[in-house]
């Protein structure tokens, strides 16, 4: 009876875990595609801040030489220069949204591999949901190996394809994915002492 209760509990935890896996995979995909670039508030604030700073610094420097600095035209020119510089900075730091067609071959391969893992676990989940009889957690070594391969891919991913913001985010996403894999271990192999992701 206790055994049945344990299996039932593990099945529930496993199904819940699949949601975390789906979310981690989507997060990785969005990061690789730099989804949301150009729309973030902080990007706009940086642009405005840099442009204002250029006006302030520019007019101060010109002022040092005793030139007139209060002109509207001068202000507009300095603001435009600052705005252009900020756009250049934003492009390197915040990046621009990438299309699926812009991805490199190894990136496409990685995304397809991660998607295939999600599909494999959705299939197991569907089997659990459609079959009320006992389902034993089988094929653990292969599933575990597949995750090790995914982690290796993620850790070796060439982040130089990405803007700095997304390179930093990549590290966080890989850490979360590794945590999901540990949770998978805890559930599937019923290991003790490992908590949820």
């Amino acid at each position: 009876m206790a055994q049945l209760k344990l299996i039932d509990e593990l099945k529930k935890r496993y199904k819940l875990w699949t949601i975390h896996l789906e979310r981690s995979t989507v997060a990785f995909k969005n990061n690789i595609l730099q989804t949301g670039s150009g729309k973030d508030i902080e990007e706009r604030l940086v642009s405005f801040g840099m442009a204002s700073l250029t006006v302030y610094i520019g007019s101060s420097i010109i002022g040092l030489f005793g030139a007139y600095t209060g002109g509207l035209l001068g202000g507009i020119v300095l603001f435009t220069i600052g705005w252009s510089l900020s756009k250049l900075f934003n492009k390197h730091f915040f990046g621009v949204e990438r299309k699926q067609s812009d991805l490199k071959e190894d990136e496409i391969e990685l995304l397809e591999y991660l998607d295939s893992l999600v599909l494999a676990h959705q299939k197991i989940r569907d089997d659990i949901n459609s079959d009320s009889s006992l389902i034993f957690f089988t094929d653990y070594p292969n599933l575990r190996r597949a995750f090790k391969k995914a982690l290796r891919y993620l850790e070796n991913y060439n982040t130089k394809y990405l803007a700095y913001k997304y390179r930093i985010k990549h590290l966080v996403i890989v850490k979360k994915y590794a945590s999901d894999v540990r949770t998978f271990d805890a559930i599937y192999a019923n290991k003790k002492g490992v908590t949820h992701a």
Partner: peptide, 8 residues
């Protein structure tokens, strides 16, 4: 919705 799809 996510939970429902997962059978929970």
């Amino acid at each position: 919705k996510e939970l429902k799809e997962a059978g929970l």
